[in-house]
């Protein structure tokens, strides 16, 4: 088959599946949060509230589209599209199975980190374009947070890269299926790097306990304060897609990706991704939000030195072993 057509097909499938999974991930999160707070969550719309995302979407489609008088129309309207685009773009290099990958880049990890850094731009564009003090404060916090957590994320991602000797995500997974998952061996490098990656990932995706850019108790709704209807939905969706993709990347980098016994690779990848995704929810509905200064302190006093030590340790380990 034509290579271009094949890529297009895979891209369509991946985007469709991602968006669908995201919609029902919203339902799942509401059910999950409800159970954690001894509630029931959505039950009335469809069986077990399964049609809740559909109803929400239909509702948001019908809402009035408000652009405030003093808002920057271009930035304001571009931001949600960019946010969703960047979040989905990151999925391009994630290998879901040996032959299911949007773009098999040799610099896959670098691409991922670059896209991850781009996701903060629409957030700030939204904060600036809204001409709303709460949105602007949220945008500023997002910038500070992203710059801080980009460093530990990069350092944590470097550990499997050095161990496998490749920046191609597919090759990293293949290396793990031959030599064991990095989470298991060398566990003294793999487990701390995995935890570091998860923490930095949570911060990148603005999830609790790192969700100070939207901190609803102090900033109304953060950067999305002025957004109505589908524009808000795009932002909301981007956040979930980002978390989902980041979970998939963590699964590929540390948990052996598609590698696993008995079942086909795709099943394992999906299972690992969703397990991590649920873990993220679990953290979200258990912990409280950090303060802005605490967040910076954690990043620069704790996570970055740990990351540097881990990378140095990995380099030593690789040289010593060879």
């Amino acid at each position: 088959m034509n290579a271009f057509l094949e890529a297009l097909l895979i891209a369509t499938v991946i985007i469709t599946v991602l968006m669908t999974v995201t919609a029902w991930a919203l339902w799942f999160e509401r059910k999950f949060a409800a159970r954690m707070q001894s509630r029931l969550g959505p039950t009335m719309v469809g069986k077990s509230g399964l049609l809740q995302p559909v109803a929400d979407l239909l509702k948001l489609l019908q809402k009035e589209d408000i652009l405030t008088t003093h808002a920057d129309g271009l930035l304001f309207n571009l931001a949600p599209v960019l946010a969703a685009g960047a979040a989905i773009g990151a999925a391009a290099v994630v290998p879901f199975a040996p032959n299911i990958v949007g773009a098999n880049l040799d610099l896959g990890v670098l691409f991922l980190l670059a896209i991850g850094a781009v996701t903060v731009l629409p957030v700030f564009a939204a904060g600036w374009g809204s001409n709303n003090k709460f949105a602007l404060l949220g945008g500023m916090r997002a910038i500070a947070q992203s710059i801080s957590y980009e460093v530990p994320l990069l350092l944590a991602a470097l550990v499997p890269v050095i161990l496998a000797g490749s920046m191609n995500l597919g090759e990293i997974v293949e290396y793990q299926s031959k030599h064991g998952w990095f989470f298991a061996w060398p566990f003294f490098l793999g487990i701390p790097a995995f935890v570091l990656f998860l923490l930095a990932m949570l911060a990148e995706a603005n999830r609790i306990p790192f969700d100070i850019p939207e901190a609803e108790s102090e900033l109304v709704a953060g950067v999305t304060t002025e957004y109505t209807g589908m524009k808000f939905a795009l932002f909301y969706m981007a956040e979930y897609v980002h978390t989902l993709v980041a979970s998939a990347v963590a699964a590929a980098l540390f948990l052996g990706g598609w590698d696993g016994p008995f079942a086909p690779g795709l099943h394992w990848m999906v299972a690992k991704t969703l397990a991590l995704f649920v873990g993220v929810y679990w953290v979200r509905w258990t912990l409280l939000r950090f303060r802005s200064d605490q967040l910076m302190r954690i990043a620069w006093y704790f996570l970055v030195p740990t990351g540097v030590a881990l990378v140095a340790g990995t380099a030593v380990w690789v040289v010593w072993r060879s």
Binding site: R30, L40, G41, E216, T224
Partner: peptide, 22 residues
Amino acid sequence: AASRVDIDRMGTIVRGTPRQAD
């Protein structure tokens, strides 16, 4: 909104900003 009655059952959540509320 809490556990005994739970308006989330009918898909109602509380939004802090008027822009996203119905």
